[in-house]
């Protein structure tokens, strides 16, 4: 009986993974199309990312040893694992463990794995890229954390499922209405998380030869693409669950995710790249201020829990 249950969960998990990957790749493709249209180009077909991924998996590649292989696998496996705890629309595979901080830390494991893989390649460009990515992380994670903590205080729970449930019943119950500053902060942090301009220092292609990805080719680059696409799904999904009230079904969920991603793309299209320390300190100013202000407002409204 337990085995059957496990197998059902396993199948569902694969389904979720495939769905998230498909959605993430589709978002990427549509993003490229939008970007092209902004630049008055025709743009690639929106299925281009699927073709690219397929091509990458059919192409030869080089490996720098088992640490490289292990790192790249560890770069996307925890991302898929984190997906299992995310409420996607009405559905959560493992609702009893959908703790938000846990998901955030699982995503960090993916970054750690990716970092291990690309650094094992022994290329200084990837080391520079990784150093930039980590420095950027100290930037965007701090306002992100401030917002997460305000949501914790506001909702008095750490379960994403319950946070979503509390926002049921229409637009006025959504956290975006109740905590607009927090939403603003997290939307800016999202720009950094997804590594879009002006925060794309880590993978600056013309500057440090695409940074961490410099030695990745073929399937390794495919794994990187999976990580990015699933990460895109996961990160926008978290924001949807936190602030946009989840969704009654899958389609509305991805529609909401797309709205968030659309904003990111628009910002990406018009801004140039910042220098790394500028962007880190930027995150410590406005977004952090917004996040902490939101938390203070929540605390003043009676969010403190006397233990």
């Amino acid at each position: 009986m337990v085995i059957v249950e496990f197998l059902i969960k396993l199948a569902q998990g694969f389904g979720i993974g495939a769905l998230a990957l498909a959605t993430g790749l589709l978002f990427g493709g549509i993003g490229r199309k939008i970007m092209a249209r902004i630049q008055r180009r025709y743009g690639p077909p929106f299925t281009q990312n699927y073709i690219d991924l397929f091509k990458l998996f059919s192409k030869g590649s080089v490996s720098h040893g088992w640490a490289f292989d292990l790192g790249l696998v560890a770069g996307f496996a925890p991302m898929l694992a984190a997906l299992m705890f995310l409420p996607i629309g009405p559905f959560t595979l493992l609702p009893s463990d959908s703790s938000l901080i846990m998901i955030v830390y699982l995503m960090m494991m993916a970054y750690l794995g990716m970092a291990m893989g690309v650094l094992a390649s022994g290329n200084p460009n990837s080391a520079i890229g990784m150093s930039r990515a980590l420095m950027l992380m100290t930037g965007y994670e701090v306002p992100f954390a401030a917002v997460i903590f305000s949501v914790y205080l506001f909702s008095k729970t750490g379960y994403l499922t319950q946070i979503v449930a509390q926002q049921a019943g229409g637009f006025m119950n959504w956290n975006i209405v109740k905590m607009p500053l927090g939403f603003l902060a997290i939307e800016i942090a999202l720009q950094g998380m997804l590594g879009e301009k002006p925060f794309d220092q880590a993978i600056a292609p013309a500057e440090i030869a695409s940074g961490p990805m410099v030695e990745l080719g073929g399937k390794y680059l495919g794994f990187g693409m999976i990580q990015h696409s699933v990460g895109l799904f996961l990160e926008t999904g978290i924001v949807v669950d936190l602030f946009l009230g989840g969704a009654p079904n899958f389609w509305i969920f991805i529609a909401k995710q797309f709205v968030l991603y659309f904003i990111v793309i628009l910002v990406d299209a018009i801004l140039p790249r910042l220098r790394i320390h500028e962007s880190t300190s930027f995150f410590w100013k406005l977004p952090l201020f917004l996040g902490i202000l939101q938390a203070v407002i929540v605390i003043i409204q009676g969010g403190v829990l006397n233990v």
């Binding site: 396993l10 030869g60 590649s61 490996s63 720098h64 496996a77 694992a81 073929g218 399937k219 390794y220």
Partner: peptide
């Protein structure tokens, strides 16, 4: 499970060359 899936995927797609 995610790691096992990852390694299976790693093994079945195109081969790599050790350098």
């Amino acid at each position: 499970v995610a790691f096992i899936f990852g390694f299976v995927l790693f093994a079945i797609v195109a081969k790599h060359k050790k350098v």
